[in-house]
Amino acid sequence: MLRWFGMLLIVCGGLLTRQALVDEMRRAQRIRSDLAAAFEAMEAEVRLLLTPMPALLRRTYGVEADAFLRGVSVRLACGTALETAWRDAAEGLALPEAERMSVATLGGRLDSGEEGVCAALALTASELRRDYDRNEVKRGERERLTTSICISISLFLGLLLL
């Protein structure tokens, strides 16, 4: 009886691990999508209205983008330079290293002329969109793979216990 209970716990652990991994993948997708939309909106505001950066950072774009931009805002208010504030905030993004770097380097290109800022925002937004689309195509397949691996491993460990 105790062994059956142990096996049940292992399977449950496997399922929870699967859920955590899937949630992480979905959150990364949400971050890509929110940030891309935010950067596109910022690019449009700069192009049409030349809205200054502090006002752009205060706008509402989406949960994940708002959290990131609020982080930049708070650091700016503490006297940190924009480039450093942006890079530090980007460090905390739940994205793969390459994508985090892509977002982090954007900060260094924001204090320039209109064309430079618009181009930098548009480029980063398009990179994030591309990554989002690529991951979205593979999302179902990855989720199924994660599910099967987690369940297989937990069942295997459960059977070993029995």
Binding site: L50, T51, P52, P54, L76, S112, G113, E114, V117
Partner: peptide, 16 residues
């Protein structure tokens, strides 16, 4: 450079 960035609020495009 830091003073220019600060007074333009890191938005040089807005003061171009």
């Amino acid at each position: 450079a830091r003073m220019v960035a600060g007074v333009t609020e890191y938005s040089r495009y807005a003061s171009a």
